[in-house]
Structures are given as C-alpha cells and as structure tokens.
Amino acid sequence: MPLPLNLSLVTLGVADIARSTAFYEALGLKAARDSNANVTFFNTSGPVLSVYSRAALAADAQLPSEGDGFRGLSLAWNLASEADVDKAIVRIVAAGGKLIKAAEKTFWGGYSGYAADPDDHLWEIVHNPGFPFDDAGRLRAPE
C-alpha cells in the first residue's frame, strides 16, 4: 500500500526571518518552542507553517535563490463568511502585508481576494460555500 500524502509543513523562503515572524505573529500565530534565529515554526489548524531564509532554503534544495515575481503558487486561508474574508484582509494589511486584489464575488459562487506577506508570498483569502469545515475546523473538499 502506498504511503498517504499528507501536507504536513509549508516553508516560506523569506528575506528577513524576524520581520516575517513578526508579521505572522501579528496575524495571531505563536512561534513554536523549537523556533530560533534561523527558522520560525507556527502551528496552524492544518500544516505547520515555517519561515526560513530564502537563500538557505534554496541552498538546501541545491537551487539558485535568485528570481522573483509570480512563483506559480498561492496559499489559501479559507474562512466561514464573506465578512470574515474582509476582516482577514484588513488584518493582513495592518500587519504589514500588501493588498493584491480586493475581495469580490467569484464566478464559482465564492468570495475571494489576494494579499501578500512581506516577501510577496501570495495568499488567497477566501470563502468557499461548497467546501465545508469538519468538526476539527479543517477545510474538506467534497468527496
């Protein structure tokens, strides 16, 4: 039987670990005990989120660290209502993030906007009425 694929940790390569740590703490996350000057770990309701030097992360993967712009990836913060989406975007901007696209109704029946953290990692802030939360508060795609 194959090993189950579980998204367990997301690492963001950042320019300044202290700045990124402060940003995510301003959003309500708390640095985990094993964090240090080289990496910060945050427990979420899903995978662990970590911030790590972009250069060190690239070196660890044996890839060049240069290059920016759209990275072909976005992270999503799913919320229970359109009002919660609007509140979260205000909170991100107040914490030092950037509004990329104001939230609006989507063609698929949801409500979504985009913001970026201080290192331009793209976050979709979204309410998807078709994706329920389970009893543990985790988003579930309908099966």
Rank of each mutant, 00 (worst) to 15 (best):
P2K: 13
P2W: 06
L3P: 04
N6D: 13
N6W: 09
N6T: 13
N6E: 12
V10N: 08
T11P: 01
L12W: 02
G13A: 03
V14N: 02
V14L: 05
D16E: 06
I17L: 07
I17H: 10
A18V: 15
S20V: 09
S20C: 13
A22D: 15
F23C: 11
Y24P: 09
Y24G: 11
Y24F: 15
A26V: 05
L27H: 04
G28C: 10
A31D: 14
A32M: 14
D34G: 13
N36Q: 03
N38H: 03
T40Q: 13
F42M: 08
N43W: 02
G46Y: 04
P47K: 04
P47E: 07
V48H: 02
L49D: 11
L49H: 11
S53A: 06
R54A: 14
A59V: 06
D60Y: 09
A61M: 13
L63A: 08
P64H: 08
E66W: 09
G69M: 08
R71T: 04
R71D: 01
A76E: 05
A76N: 09
W77A: 12
W77F: 06
A80M: 00
E82A: 14
E82H: 12
K87L: 13
V93G: 05
A94T: 10
K98Q: 12
L99K: 06
K101D: 10
K101I: 06
A102H: 12
A103F: 14
A103N: 12
F107A: 11
F107I: 05
G110R: 15
G110V: 14
G113D: 10
D117F: 03
P118K: 09
P118I: 08
D119W: 05
D120Y: 02
H121E: 00
H121W: 06
I125R: 09
V126G: 08
H127L: 11
N128P: 04
F131M: 03
D134K: 07
D135I: 03
D135K: 11
A136N: 09
A136C: 00
A136I: 00
R138V: 01
L139Y: 00
R140I: 07
R140Y: 00
A141L: 06
